[in-house]
Design a binder for these strands. Structure first.
Ligand SMILES: Nc1nc2c(ncn2[C@H]2C[C@H](O)[C@@H](COP(=O)(O)OP(=O)(O)OP(=O)(O)O)O2)c(=O)[nH]1
Ligand SMILES: [Mg+2]
Ligand SMILES: [Mg+2]
Ligand SMILES: [Zn+2]
Length: 581
DNA sequence: GCCGTTTTCGGCCCGACTGTTTTCAGTCG
């Protein structure tokens, strides 16, 4: 049998384009040529249509930044795993050189010199060369550069993967609160990817407004959590911390707050686009303000709204600032009214002590009441997951009886629900007579992670054909930093969800956040509904909803399309099982 | 390499910090 070509998805294509860009840069290619590869990589990653569909329909150039050449190169990757320029580049340079550029302090020029002069092709090689004193001896390097690179290797090795938002956000808020409390500080807020609510973050960025910047910089260098000062100047300090995260602190004058917050919130791609647009209007945007190019006069700077208004734009919510369509919407004045935490009327996914949860029904109900919810779906595991105590019919009767008692007491309504297991054939637990008795059924994959695309896809499609499967739980099964998503034809999954009236879940558990932002946009494109649940295995985890909402907002999700942004009767009426034919 | 209510050619964001520089390149945000 022929060996199968690997199946590509948008992130896989984007990764190859990014590698190409890095190799081109190391090879000394024109700046705008390699930047075009990075730009296309970002656009492909953020594009809410499957790259295979686009290629088949010869619509790759629909993606902004993908022209004739890049479309041909992407098509070539899909067909044979590479393209001509990539083959030439990797014949000229070892592709492992891109890993050298991941070491803080090593960029394309130093990587090239290390390779040319010392034959260094890996981080291990680099470490050896440092130990032998060869790096410091290089033209243009020196002792300090060698020491910085050595420290960079340690960070590269120990910090590695991006942090979960749920781990970084509390720390970011703590650092901001600490700096805000300084007598010389006027205000301080987290910015960067933390403010944009990205599911993982590379570092923590904090903006401070102050008339005494040196006092802020001193405080940043001496934060209790600092393990190393990477750089510290008049307005910017970068430190490594005990949390294994880099913290970047930027300070500006109070009247520059809005421009600086716009800059430091990013994303970089959003900023570049905003600045290009400004230029076309005869304006210049920096972290200090919006300026007229002709007179140098400052037109805006104190608030973000003023900055965007000076460019004729609405202020896009931070979660949308990825240069993925929000600039066009903001310019046209058509930004969507995104879902907020306050719109959430209930949680549609939680576990109890009846299976693998650590809190009782009663404790979950109390938490739902505390959160001001109207309802809570009790979705313990079904019989198919016996190893975590999956419920049999007797267990269900007992749980339902207790739910009836609790509902009689008032407060948030507990919904008799279940998280069904989707088996190898796409079938779920229990006979139809039982499924019909639930208020809501979620169905989720819990096995088969390494399966080929068509297998996982057909399991989900089959499950969605079941008229009692109202929601597909954590559709891809990804676990951030631990498990790749199952390979799926997500276009087919979203289309089937829309066609059958099956909602797709955002599992708000911080290492899942599944569906992801980009897949949510794809789901909305197809007209699918969204369901939000924390997958709490302990009552306190029902607070994870805020992370689900961040991901939903990044996916352009509105309250209208979200099941649990509706009052109970409407929410129930939207379920597949209650649809009138 | 991409792109176009000023353009199919000539642009492509803007600034901070560091080290080795004798005037600024490299890296990063
Ligand atoms: N104008 C402009 N701004 C940039 C550039 N690079 C970074 N920024 C701004 C926007 C970023 O959100 C902000 C913080 O930079 P970071 O490198 O920390 O990126 P960000 O937080 O977006 O993502 P991260 O999760 O940290 O990788 O600085 C750039 O090249 N140009
Ligand atoms: Mg950041
Ligand atoms: Mg940063
Ligand atoms: Zn669950």
């Amino acid at each position: 049998m022929e060996p199968r070509m690997p199946e590509y998805d948008n992130p896989a294509i984007a990764a190859i384009l990014d590698t190409t860009a890095d190799l081109l840069e190391i090879a000394g290619a024109d700046r705008f040529r390699f930047l075009s590869y990075h730009k296309a990589a970002h656009a492909v990653r953020a594009w809410p249509e499957d790259i295979n569909t686009l290629a088949t329909e010869e619509r790759l150039t629909d993606i902004p930044g993908v022209g004739k050449k890049l479309a041909a190169n992407i098509a070539s990757i899909l067909a044979r795993g590479s393209f001509a320029e990539f083959d030439e580049l990797t014949a000229e340079l070892p592709p492992t050189l891109v890993a050298l550029m991941q070491v803080p302090g090593v960029g394309p020029k130093k990587a090239r010199t290390l390779y040319d002069r010392l034959g260094v092709t890996s981080v291990d090689d680099l470490e050896a060369a440092l130990a032998e004193g060869k790096v410091a001896a290089l033209q243009g390097f020196g002792d300090r550069t060698a020491a910085n690179i050595a420290a960079g290797i340690i960070s590269y090795r120990t910090f590695g993967a991006r942090a979960l938002l749920a781990d970084a956000l509390p720390l970011a808020e703590k650092v901001a609160a600490y700096l805000r409390a300084l007598p010389s500080a006027v205000s301080a807020e987290p910015a960067g990817s933390v403010r944009r609510g990205k599911e993982t973050v590379g570092d923590i960025d904090v903006l401070v407004a102050s008339l005494d910047p040196s006092a802020i910089m001193e405080a940043a260098r001496t934060l209790p959590i600092v393990t190393r000062v990477i750089a510290s100047g008049e307005t910017k300090t970068s430190v490594e911390t005990t949390a294994g995260l880099q913290v970047d602190v930027r300070v500006v004058a109070p009247d520059e707050w809005g421009a600086a917050l716009q800059y430091f919130t990013g994303s970089a791609e959003h900023n570049v686009r905003v600045r290009e647009i400004a230029k076309g209007l005869g304006l210049k945007v920096t972290e200090y303000g919006v300026f007229r190019i002709d007179t140098g006069e400052r037109c805006a700077s104190d608030t973000e709204e003023a900055v965007y208004a000076a460019l004729g734009m609405q202020t896009p919510p931070p979660e949308l600032r990825e240069n993925a369509g929000e600039i066009e919407s903001a310019t046209a004045g058509t930004l969507p009214k995104l879902i907020t935490l306050a719109d959430i009327r209930g949680d549609l996914h939680c576990h109890t002590t009846a299976t693998d949860g650590k809190s009782t029904l009663e404790a979950n109900k109390a938490k739902a009441a505390e959160l001001g919810y109207e309802y809570l779906a009790i979705t313990d595991h079904a019989w198919g997951l016996r190893m975590v105590g999956g419920l049999d019919l007797d267990d269900l009767e007992r749980q339902w009886a207790r739910i009836d008692e609790l509902n009689a007491e008032g407060g948030p309504v507990l919904l008799k629900s279940i998280e069904l297991n989707i088996d190898e054939k796409g079938e779920v637990d229990y006979p139809d007579e039982v499924l019909a008795r639930f208020d809501i059924c979620i169905a989720s994959l819990h096995s088969g992670w390494g399966q080929p695309r068509e297998v996982g896809t057909s399991r989900l499609l089959r499950a969605m054909e079941n008229r009692f499967v109202d929601i597909i739980g954590h559709p891809t099964g990804r676990i951030l930093r631990r498990r790749e998503p199952i390979d799926l034809d997500m276009e087919a999954v979203c289309a089937k969800a829309a066609e059958t009236g099956t909602a797709l879940e955002i599992d708000a558990y911080p290492d899942r956040l599944d569906l992801s932002d980009v897949h949510l946009r794809m789901a909305l494109r197809h007209g699918a509904r969204i369901s939000m649940g924390c997958d709490a295995h302990e009552a306190s985890q029902m607070h994870f909803m805020r992370y689900g909402v961040s991901t939903a907002r990044r996916g352009w999700v509105t309250p209208e399309v979200t099941l649990n942004a509706h009052p109970l009767p409407e929410m129930l009426a939207l379920l597949k099982r209650n649809r009138t034919a």
